[in-house]
Amino acid sequence: MQIPEGYFEEVHMHLKKQTAHLLNEGMQTPEDYFDQVQTKLASQVESNTPKTQWSTLLRVAAIGILLVSGLLFIQSNDQSISDQLAQQESFENFEFDLEDLEELDPDLLGELLLSESPSMYSDDELLEHFEYEDIPLEDLMEII
């Protein structure tokens, strides 16, 4: 006696379908649900994979931009601090020079102010005043 090939598998599948309703206590799924959900999820994860790589790249790029901005900011801060220090130093030196230059000609002093600390005495009116008016040194000291 012989049986067809795959007979038991076929019977098993048939019985499984017939009894699924009983085993699942009245709960069913839409027809071909498992095939459909497998296809749906497979396409979701496939489309997610390159997105994930892109998002990783974007994240890395954003972090890089932040780091570079941070470094530039620190550098510009350092530069402005060193500029301020240099400015302050030149101003202090200038004050020191004034003490020794009581007989300094006001016109020369005006030029000195221009060259030593242009950012602090850049007011046009004041410079004109220094250059073209004969201001006594004492008055000038008060102004400063």
């Binding site: 699942n24 709960m27 799924t29 498992f34 959900v37 497998q38 999820l41 497979a42 994860v45 496939e46 994979t49």
Partner: peptide, 21 residues
Amino acid sequence: QNAGFSALMHKYQERLYWHIR
């Protein structure tokens, strides 16, 4: 990854679905 996911779904999806259901 995708091949692994397909294999996982093929093996476990029905059991896991009914467990959740």
